[in-house]
Amino acid sequence: MQFDRRSSLWHMIAAPIAWSLHFCVVYGWTASVCARGWDAGTARLGIAIATGLAIAFIAAIGWHAWKQWDYLDDFDYEHDGPSVEDRREFLGHAGWLLALVSLIGVLFNASPALFISSCV
């Protein structure tokens, strides 16, 4: 797998960007559906689809980051050395952790659709 140095900075924040997009889509969609007086079921369906996509994307990013971290080769999680490998594994590790937090964020953000079934 290729871990180019410039793109890996973007990889690191790809998962939180996915969280942001999921958040915007879910909020914008719900606001539109409820403002137009459509059925809240439509809103919940949209939320489910967006959440599925976001989880899949974050999982892919997380997997990529895990490979980049390559924890199992040396069990290093400090990455405080001056080598290229330290930097690459650091960005992978941070990206993996961000994917984890983003995943929790997406699940939290989808939870209202489980409990609330109307636009009230």
């Binding site: 929790i104 939290f108 209202p112 609330i116």
Partner: peptide, 21 residues
């Protein structure tokens, strides 16, 4: 994560109840 999920679940289910017509 566990505690907040619990609190959130309670609050989310309470919200529509308090807004019943």
């Amino acid at each position: 994560t566990v505690v907040l999920a619990g609190l959130l679940a309670f609050a989310l289910s309470e919200m529509p109840r308090q807004r019943d017509p």
